[in-house]
Structure formats: structure tokens, C-alpha cells
């Protein structure tokens, strides 16, 4: 729950609650259905796997949520995942320094994010177009750097992506820690409050003294950095950085954010909702595998989920208007 919801009006609180609750109910319904239809679902091995799958989507969605709350969008996250993983792996291979590889992965993401932010704030390019361009540029760089061939990526990255602490995936623990941190940032930190204000009414926020450019630059940079981390985790899990890694990930990430109740036109959304949304996406993926349904249907379903989630949001807003 955001401060907005806790401190906000009862009407808003119930709306947000309603939104998170409905996603939570959907999540539980699918879980119960799977538990009855497939004996393997409830095994700890499977559940932990779902958790691991959810964590990369959730980590990147944390950054995406802040971008969308500030009335932007970042379509480039999938490609940034790919390029960060590849650059990190190449640097690691060249130097053999584990910490450097990891750091370079995060930095690559950060640089892409800041480039997005600068295009939006300085050149006034619409975020949709700026990040669509970055989607192509970043993927192209990943392919150029590797010549299209996957690079081996082991060591610390493998620990992040495939490691476990007391049976729990490291990436899942990392996701929970980051979610808590971003939740606090969003609800308790000055910066988070200003992000919400910008998304709510940019003109008013500017005249209230908020530095629009700086704040927007931050959200894009932060989102890029988390996508870089996502790339390292994802590649670490496979012990290999594929230049095509993370292709189409933007869809899962944006779907998770929207499913979690974040308004596409900004100013509204909660971090807990985003995490639940990411879980739901991972559970859907898992369901297709367990039920043995064609992976092609999975692609169709993901698209439908995003359309339905946004559709519900639109319907609700229309009621608000009336």
C-alpha cells in the first residue's frame, strides 16, 4: 500500500485495494486450479521455480512501475536486459574480475536508462518513441558485441541467477529486498512522492517546485539499472549470456505493472501490486507448462492479459468521469 492509499481518501484507498485484491484473487484462483489439476504444482521445487521466474519480471517491473507512475513508459527493458547481460559477460571473460562483470552489467543498464531519460527530457521525444528506438539500438549492440553467439557467464552471476540460500532462490530473496526498498522509496521518500506528483499533474508539479527533468531522468535511469540487474540474473541462471536474452520481456514487465493496478496515465500505483502482478505472470507461464498447452497459446494469452487489464482500467476510469 502506498502512502497515497494509506493517507489518501477512502475512495482511492478502496479503489486501490479493490485493484490489488482482484489481482490477488486471480492469482489464488489459478493456484488452486493448478493444485487440483496437477500434482506437481504444489511441490516445493515447482513453487520455487515459479518464484524464480517471477523475480526477474518483478525486479524490472519495479523500475517500470516508477516510470509509468511518472507518466512515462519504457519499452526498451527487454533489449536492455540482453545488452547488459552480454556486455557484463564479455567484460568478465576479458578481465576475469567477478565484481567488475557485475558492476558493468548494472552500469550498461543505467547508461541505456539515462539515454532514454535524456531523450525524453532534453530532446522532448515522446517516451514511447524514445524507448522504442532504444529497444532496437540496445538489441543491435548486443548482437554486434557478440556476433550473435552466446557468451559464457558464470561465477557471481550464476549465484544470483541459479543459487539458493536455504533452498530459496537468491534472485527471489533479492527481489523481495528490492521491492521493500522501492516500496519505501515510493511511499516514504521525498523522491517517490515527487514521482507520484509528476504523474498526477505535471504542470502543477512543476509550478510546485519539482524538478521535472531531474526526476524523470532518475526514473528512467533507475529502470534501466534494474533491467541491467535483471539481465545479469537471467543470464546467470543459464550460465550463458545470449544476445537474444530478454526478447519480448517488455510485455511481461508492463503487463505486471498494469495488472498490479498502476494507472497508465500516471500518478497512481503501488509496489505491492506490481509484485503480485509479476507473480501472476509467472504463474500463467507455469500453468501452460504444467498443463502441457502449446507455447504458442502462451504468447496469445499474454497479449490478451495486457489488453484485458488495460481495458478494465479504462472502464473504471470512464465510470470515474461520469
Amino acid at each position: 500500500m502506498t502512502t497515497l492509499a494509506k493517507a489518501g481518501a477512502p475512495a482511492l484507498r478502496s479503489l486501490l485495494r479493490h485493484r490489488e485484491a482482484s489481482v490477488l484473487i486471480m492469482l489464488l484462483a489459478i493456484a488452486v486450479f493448478l493444485a487440483f489439476s496437477n500434482e506437481y504444482f504444489l511441490s516445493s521445487r515447482n513453487l520455487l521455480n515459479v518464484g524464480r521466474q517471477a523475480s526477474v519480471v518483478a525486479i524490472v517491473a519495479l523500475g517500470q512501475a516508477l516510470v509509468i507512475i511518472a507518466r512515462g513508459i519504457d519499452l526498451s527493458v527487454g533489449s536492455v536486459i540482453g545488452v547488459s547481460a552480454v556486455v557484463a559477460a564479455v567484460v568478465l571473460q576479458a578481465t576475469g574480475i567477478q565484481s567488475l562483470g557485475l558492476l558493468v552489467g548494472l552500469l550498461t543498464g543505467l547508461v541505456c536508462g539515462i539515454a532514454n531519460g535524456l531523450m525524453v527530457t532534453r530532446l522532448r521525444i515522446n517516451p514511447f518513441i524514445a524507448t522504442l528506438g532504444m529497444l532496437s539500438v540496445a538489441r543491435g549492440i548486443a548482437l554486434l558485441v557478440t556476433g550473435g553467439i552466446p557468451v559464457m557467464f558464470t561465477g557471481w552471476a550464476e549465484f544470483l541467477g541459479a543459487g539458493r540460500i536455504w533452498q530459496i532462490p537468491v534472485s527471489f530473496i533479492l527481489m523481495l529486498i528490492l521491492a521493500l526498498a522501492v516500496h519505501i522509496l515510493a511511499t516514504r521518500h521525498r523522491l517517490g512522492r515527487e514521482i507520484y506528483a509528476i504523474g498526477d499533474n505535471p504542470k502543477a508539479a512543476r509550478l510546485a517546485g519539482i524538478d521535472l527533468k531531474k526526476t524523470r531522468l532518475f526514473v528512467f535511469g533507475f529502470c534501466g539499472c534494474l533491467a541491467g540487474l535483471g539481465g545479469v540474473i537471467l543470464a546467470g541462471n543459464l550460465a550463458s549470456a545470449d544476445p537474444n536474452l530478454g526478447m519480448g520481456y517488455e510485455l511481461d514487465v508492463i503487463a505486471a505493472v498494469i495488472l498490479g493496478g498502476t494507472a497508465l496515465n500516471g500518478g497512481r500505483g503501488s509496489i505491492i501490486g506490481v509484485v503480485i502482478g509479476a507473480m501472476l505472470m509467472a504463474l500463467l507461464n507455469n500453468a501452460f507448462v504444467l498443463l502441457g498447452i502449446s507455447a504458442y497459446w502462451q504468447v496469445v494469452t499474454k497479449g490478451l492479459v495486457i489488453i484485458i487489464a488495460v481495458g478494465i482500467d479504462g472502464l473504471q476510469r470512464r465510470e470515474d468521469d461520469e
Partner: peptide, 28 residues
């Protein structure tokens, strides 16, 4: 159009310009 933050509470609307002075270490 240029004044209120419509999805925010009255309190947040009042404090939005003064968060700097009431956020030691960044936390409000």
C-alpha cells in the same frame, strides 16, 4: 490545470513543495 494534484490528498497537496525541509535524509 496548473494547481492541484487531483489524485492526491489534501495533506500531500499542501506539503508537496516543502518535502525538502521535512525530509531529513530524504525520508518524509
Amino acid at each position: 490545470t496548473a494547481g492541484i494534484l487531483p489524485q492526491h490528498s489534501v495533506r500531500s497537496n499542501m506539503s508537496i513543495s516543502s518535502l525538502g525541509s521535512m525530509s531529513p535524509g530524504g525520508i518524509v
